[in-house]
């Protein structure tokens, strides 16, 4: 297949394949530091995909996705440490916990018609409650954090997520690819069409016989479960969990910045956004270190300006703009 004269769809496939190939080959080419940054990009892309299903597809703004991340992380880690149950099984418990929490939020929101920004406030309230709750839950370490044992003899137990940087890199790549696959399949499904219709005009969708409440619950469940899987990954990758970190509002914002910058509601937006923001954040830290400046908050400041710039220049995100430029797409998707 030649790339230049082909249709936008074919060009998109080629671009995606090349990008994927580069990511597969990366561990053999780049050094450990760069690899760890790509890993963060991939995790950001995956979590962005999960958030994007809820907001980008279904139009429900969650500002508390850290809740599902934390529940997933604590759920699987607690099972592993306290009961010796591996994350290969724990991941399902993690997803179930997140789905249950999202059900409570959804039930409150949809039952009492808490719509729009009030729904978003509800999601913050739950994430913050969880943070305070876990801060004070001594059995899981409380505010001092929960640690996973790192034992040399466990190394190589990949089913228990005990492995080296290469293992975690490829796992992140698999997550990101899986997230893209799930998003693409859902986007093209009947449920996906219902979500888009609800996002555009919930009232009109209702008038057409779309079961709006059911479709919204489905979006919540899928998004929460996917995010929880990301939480399991973070727990076993980092080997420590702190309520003040994982449930933090800043974490929720980090999850959504990627898709917002890349393009809310698009398939590739979360990936593009994450691959832009994570290296930018790292470069900024490096630059500040080189300058000998200790300026906490500088990252947030730069992100803020960047966000303003993007909203002004490409309000629908970087990906739609990029896709038009590179002729990877004949219309927004």
């Amino acid at each position: 297949m030649s790339a230049s004269p082909a249709s936008p769809g074919a060009r998109q496939t080629v671009a995606l394949a090349l990008f994927g190939l580069a990511l597969v080959a990366a561990p053999f080419v780049v050094d450990r530091y760069i690899l760890s940054i790509i890993l963060l990009c991939l995790i950001g892309a995956y979590l962005g995909q999960a958030w994007n299903i809820l907001m980008g597809f279904c139009g429900l703004l969650s500002l508390g996705h850290a809740l599902y991340l934390g529940l997933g992380a604590y759920g699987a880690a607690a099972l592993y440490v306290k009961f010796g149950i591996g994350p290969w099984l724990g991941v399902f418990v993690a997803m179930a916990l997140a789905v249950a929490a999202s059900f409570v939020i959804g039930w409150l929101g949809f039952r009492f018609r808490i719509e729009g920004v009030y729904f978003s406030l509800l999601t913050i309230a739950f994430a913050e409650s969880a943070r305070i709750g876990f801060d004070n839950w001594a059995w899981l370490g409380g505010a001092a954090g929960f640690f996973l044992p790192v034992r040399a003899e466990d190394f190589g137990q990949y089913w228990n997520l005990r492995g080296g940087p290469f293992f975690f890199y490829y796992l992140a790549l698999a997550l990101a690819a899986g997230g893209l696959f799930v998003s693409a399949r859902l986007r093209a499904s009947k449920l996906g069409h219902a979500w888009l219709a609800i996002r555009e005009d919930a009232q009109a969708a209702r008038a057409l016989g779309v079961n709006v409440t059911r479709a919204r619950f489905m979006a919540l469940f899928v998004s929460a479960a996917m995010t929880a899987v990301g939480g399991v990954y973070l727990a076993f990758w980092g080997n420590n969990i702190f309520p003040g970190q994982i449930f933090d509002m800043a974490h929720s914002i980090d999850i959504m910045l990627g898709p917002i910058v890349g393009g809310v509601g698009t398939l590739f937006g979360p990936i593009v956004g994450s691959f832009l923001l994570v290296p930018l954040g790292e470069a900024l830290i490096e630059a500040l270190r080189a300058l000998g400046l200790n300026a906490p908050g500088a990252k947030a400041l730069v992100y803020g300006f960047l966000l303003m710039g993007i909203i002004a220049a490409a309000p629908s995100g970087v990906w739609p703009w990029l896709a038009r430029r590179l002729r990877l797409q004949d219309r927004e998707q």
């Binding site: 009947k190 069409h193 219902a194 219709a197 555009e200 009109a204 008038a207 057409l208 016989g209 779309v210």
Partner: peptide, 29 residues
């Protein structure tokens, strides 16, 4: 709706950023 009672609401209410075919498919759900 599923009993066969349809509605064309006031102000058209098409889904503006969905394609025409996607709009139609939502109606047939």
């Amino acid at each position: 709706c599923n009993l066969g009672l349809g509605q064309v609401a006031e102000g058209r209410q098409v889904f503006p950023s969905l394609t025409v075919s996607e709009n139609l498919l939502v109606g047939g759900m």
